[in-house]
Nucleic acid binder design. Structure first.
Length: 379
DNA sequence: AAGTCGGGGCG
DNA sequence: CGCCCAGACTT
């Protein structure tokens, strides 16, 4: 990464995209990374399959969370052929708890595309990589640079913050102008060699040093190149994003018991947790105090033709889904009579409900709240 | 440009 | 609790 023939041709530092020279910038990044980089499981090889899996898992998900998921996934499905041939349910089971489950289904679909359209070999060109489902500009650049050494820029949470500070960008980062400027900067600073290491090093600096709060500029390899630090405004840049207004919702989850079995349903392709299984859920009114449990009994009967009697409150789980704050009341019901009637979603596709032995819940991919309830039952 | 999609880590 | 996270995709 220290070899930067293009930038070395530049005699004039005034044309450098960073404060000081780009040559020094590259050298500082490289030296720092060699000393401070974390030992992460996906850094043990440049296998494009592993790089790809890690990058998808890391989308909007912190490094610490991904580590174990990555290890388990690679152990279970070590090659793109294994992934392509796997059942979607198996892939979702490996993804359970990570969130953004569309990632898992697109990963599966992309593996099948790699096997068919690219004959089992991961494409090398950025455009080909980005044409795969679930891969946008960031992920394509990351895979192309890390696995294939292509000279492709990256921009994600860590580098957005780092770059904004480096150039003293005093605008909200989400606008298209800001994004255009930051991508341009990411491209302008690319070295000619070891681009994958360089990109990872900058993310690592952003993650470990150039933190959202209390960045440790004294220990930053790039402080000499940083406009925000030069101005003493590293705490003000980037500008805070506007906070979202959360909408409180109350729902009820039903554990309908029939001897050793419970009633579960698979979420349809058009709803949250698509492809995952969950206990039957119904929305409740705004009022938390006065809940109409008999109405829920009626809703269940109308939905699937099952009559059951409300038994006991199991627990209350609070969780968030994007802008919603959900209070989930979990109640146990006792099956009385009725057979499951076939369900059809608004899209005409069949909706799957079934009775399942509590002991077999472990094999199903469940929503996180569903898993918490499942553990409660087998405890 | 704004909305949707989850869940956990951490001060 | 609130903020943040190696974004992609649709509207």
């Amino acid at each position: 990464m220290a070899k930067t023939s293009r930038s070395q041709l530049k005699k004039n530092d005034a044309s450098s995209p960073v404060r000081g020279s780009l040559v020094a910038f590259h050298a500082h990044v490289a030296a720092w990374f060699q000393q401070h980089q974390r030992d992460l499981p996906w850094r043990k090889s440049q296998d494009p399959y592993r790089v790809w899996i890690s990058e998808i898992m890391l989308q909007q998900t912190q490094v610490a969370t991904v580590k174990e998921y990555f290890r388990r996934f690679i152990a279970q499905l070590p090659t793109v052929q294994d992934l392509a041939a796997a059942e979607e349910q198996e892939v979702l089971r490996l993804w359970e708890g990570l969130g953004y489950y569309r990632r898992a289904r697109q990963l599966h679909a992309a593996a099948q595309e790699i096997v068919t359209r690219f004959h089992g070999e991961f494409p090398h060109q950025v455009d080909d990589i980005q044409s795969l489902p679930g891969i946008g500009r960031y992920t394509a650049g990351a895979i192309a640079s890390i696995a294939f050494g292509q000279r492709a820029p990256i921009l994600e949470a860590n580098t957005q913050r780092l770059y904004a500070r480096l150039i003293g960008w005093d605008e909200v980062l989400t606008t298209s102008l800001s994004q255009k400027r930051l991508w341009q900067f990411a491209e302008d600073i690319l070295p000619d060699d070891n681009v994958g290491i360089f990109n990872q090093a900058l993310m690592e600096v952003g993650s470990l040093v150039c933190t959202p709060k209390n960045p440790t500029c004294q220990q930053c390899p790039l402080s000499a190149h940083c406009e925000a630090y030069h101005q003493g405004r590293q705490e003000e840049i980037p500008r805070p994003k506007k906070k979202i207004e959360f909408i409180p919702i109350t729902e009820i989850a039903l554990v309908v018991r029939k001897k050793n079995q419970v009633l579960v349903r698979q979420c349809g392709p058009d709803e949250r947790w698509a492809g995952l299984w969950d206990f039957p859920r119904f929305p409740l009114g705004e009022t938390k105090s006065d809940i109409d449990l008999s109405g829920v009994t009626k809703q269940l009967a109308e939905a699937v033709g099952i009559q059951a009697e409300m038994h006991q409150h199991l627990k209350t789980i609070k969780h968030g889904v994007t802008k919603y704050r959900i209070t989930l009341l979990c109640h146990e019901m006792i099956y009385q009579q009725g057979r499951l009637k076939p369900q059809t979603g608004p899209d005409g596709q069949p909706r799957v409900w079934k009775w399942i032995d509590v002991a077999e819940l472990g094999e199903l991919p469940l929503s996180t709240t569903g898993r918490k309830l499942g553990r409660l039952l087998s405890a």
